[in-house]
């Protein structure tokens, strides 16, 4: 436990002394903010039209109109940005030979994997927390239901957790950061795109199975405001599986 924290602490220090964490966070905040602004603009013109047509203030649901698409956007942008955060985690240590240091110090391999995962989750949580201005603005100027927003955040947080576990796994495969980034991105994209395939194959028996595998499917309920145990189990098992495979890969690399 102590060594896990030591690794996580070191990782955070490296993340925040190099520009990486800041750049990724800034890009994430800028793009989500830009899309959010567009959505809000679109929603207000729409409600304006409805008002003109009906002659009265319409009862619109800001949660559905604004936050559902915003969460969807976040998911896609995380898919693009989180691999940038995870790609260097293990690849860099191998490249600059510090892996030899970690592996010959009395730190269990699991602590290395967990420490790195936790540190990245901290950065990601920080990134996500910064988007909190979006619901706060809406709450200040309009009326929103907080529950679906919180479950939405939980869903996105878990989704990011899976992306990071997958990215960490990708990073264990190579000592080239760029390759690790691409593998991570590709893997995350596949998890996402299985959903599309399941729609086109909806009639075949494979359809529901693919739908179950698709990560988007398991994020949707959270965004709609529902917490489903099945979804929790799915996300948690993907995270555990990702970390487990990473651990196995690192162990097997010793035997090469």
């Amino acid at each position: 436990m102590k060594s896990t924290l030591a690794i996580a602490g070191k990782e955070l220090r490296v993340l925040f002394t190099s520009p990486m964490a800041y750049v990724v966070t800034a890009v994430f905040i800028l793009i989500t903010g830009y899309l959010y602004y567009n959505i809000v603009l679109f929603a207000s013109t729409q409600s304006m039209q409805i008002m003109r047509a009906q002659g009265a203030l319409p009862k619109i649901n800001l949660n559905d109109l604004i936050f559902r698409p915003t969460f969807h956007n976040m998911a896609v942008i995380l898919m693009l940005t989180l691999p940038l955060l995870t790609m260097r985690l293990l690849a860099e240590e191998k490249k600059i030979k510090t892996m030899e240091l970690l592996m010959t110090s009395p730190v269990p391999l699991l602590a290395i994997v967990l420490g790195k995962y936790i540190a990245t989750m901290v950065v990601f949580t920080f990134m996500l927390a910064l988007t909190g201005y979006m619901p706060l603005l809406m709450w200040y100027y309009g009326s929103i239901q907080w529950m679906p927003i919180l479950t939405g955040y939980l869903g996105i947080w878990l989704l990011g957790g899976v992306f990071i576990a997958v990215g960490l796994l990708a990073s264990s495969l190579t000592e080239n950061q760029i390759i690790a980034g691409f593998i991570g991105f590709g893997a995350v994209l596949i998890l996402w795109l299985i959903g599309w395939l399941s729609q086109t194959m909806a009639d075949s028996p494979l359809g529901p199975f693919l739908a179950y595998l698709s990560i988007g499917e398991h994020t949707e309920n959270f965004i709609k405001g529902m917490i489903d145990t099945g979804d929790l189990v799915y996300q948690a098992s993907l995270i555990v599986l990702g970390l487990f495979i990473t651990h196995r890969i690192m162990e097997s690399q010793r035997w090469k």
Binding site: K2, S3, A6, I7, G9, K10, R13, V14, T17, S18, I96, K97, T98, M99, E100, L101, L102, T104, S105, P106, V107
Partner: peptide
């Protein structure tokens, strides 16, 4: 090791403090 395993973004003290933790 053959090539000293160093984190170039850290100061000497930071680095050695980290090492003392993992050891």
């Amino acid at each position: 090791p053959e090539s000293p395993p160093l984190y170039t973004e850290m100061t000497v003290t930071e680095y050695l403090t980290f090492i003392s933790k993992i050891k």
